[in-house]
């Protein structure tokens, strides 16, 4: 009786230990923690945007246009007299949402294609890889521009455009991982125990690809946010009046030599986000790397 109880609690303890190890290593990395704090703050800001934002992001006031930062408007106002800070806060919401959607879509499609391609090999692999060659030949941003132009603005359309541009990268990553894993003896051991292809993919291969995928996903969130801004910057992607960092930046182009807040603040927002996710991803990579375990 007692022993069984013990083993139960031990199981709980043990199951979490692998992730606990990762967390302990991650916590030692100060830069990664900075990145994580940035990411968490950004998420909170996105969720509680209406509570945090000092003004409505839509209210225009021509009388108050292009004001320099002041106590009233911490980051000044834009060419329509809207509070830049409030627009940035709401903009973060959109950027993060679209970026997450895109990451999930490209992860699911690219990950599945990559795993199948790597594990099955042969003709399936050849076909998928040629398709990916084609996707890789079109620069990501041009691809996103084309798709975005074809599908029109909007959260979903933009997410899809960004996602397609990211599929090839994920696919290659997962395929590479799968190829190395495929020749591992534990995969053969699973086959020798009677596991079928699907079971091996789901229960052996994908969990073991997880570490690089997590790292890649983290970094893609940042990268996607930049891509979204680039799209809105050229007038595609999420359409006004929804505030988006790239769009705000674009509206500052006219005032490039006269009014710096409209350029600098949205730029810092994009850069800070990317920085956060990049260093967090870097830290995760180190923390998840089993080579560093010793």
């Amino acid at each position: 009786m007692n022993a069984q109880k013990n083993s139960g609690s031990m199981e709980k303890l043990r199951k979490s230990s692998q992730w606990k190890d990762v967390w302990i290593r991650l916590r030692r990395n100060k830069l990664a923690m900075v990145g994580m704090v940035i990411a968490v703050l950004l998420a909170l800001m996105a969720i509680f945007a209406p509570v945090i934002a000092p003004y409505d992001y839509q209210v225009q006031s021509i009388a108050e246009r292009l004001q320099m930062p002041s106590a009233q408007h911490l980051m000044g106002t834009d060419n329509m007299g809207r509070d830049i800070l409030s627009r940035l806060i709401y903009g973060g919401r959109i950027s993060l949402l679209v970026s997450l959607l895109a990451v999930i879509v490209s992860l699911v499609i690219g990950g599945l294609l990559g795993a199948v391609s790597g594990y099955m090999g042969g003709k399936v692999d050849a076909v998928i890889m040629r398709l990916m060659d084609i996707l890789m030949a079109i620069p990501g941003i041009l691809m996103a521009v084309c798709i975005s132009a074809a599908l029109g603005g909007g959260v979903w359309q933009t997410a899809l455009a960004i996602a397609v541009a990211g599929i090839a990268g994920v696919c290659r990553l997962v395929r590479g991982q799968t190829l190395t894993l495929r020749n591992q003896e534990y995969i053969e051991a699973a086959r020798a125990s009677g596991s079928g292809t699907l079971r091996i993919l789901l229960s052996n291969i994908i969990p073991n690809c997880l570490a690089p995928i997590i790292v890649n996903t983290t970094m893609s969130i940042g990268g996607n946010i930049m891509m979204i801004s680039a799209l809105s910057f050229v007038g595609l992607g999420v359409q006004p009046p929804i505030p988006e960092w790239g769009a705000i930046l674009n509206s500052g182009r006219e005032y490039v030599s006269t009014f710096w807040p409209l350029i600098t603040f949205p730029g810092i927002a994009i850069a800070l986000t990317m920085f956060g996710f990049n260093v967090f991803g870097d830290g995760l990579r180190d923390a998840l790397d089993p080579k560093l375990k010793q």
Binding site: F233, S257, T258, G267, N278
Partner: peptide, 22 residues
């Protein structure tokens, strides 16, 4: 290099214009 890797080119371009041209 971590910081530089986080700066989008199109923003850098605008800041550069702001600083070096304007």
């Amino acid at each position: 290099s971590i910081i530089l890797a986080s700066l989008p080119g199109f923003w850098l371009a605008m800041e550069a214009i702001l600083i070096f041209s304007a």
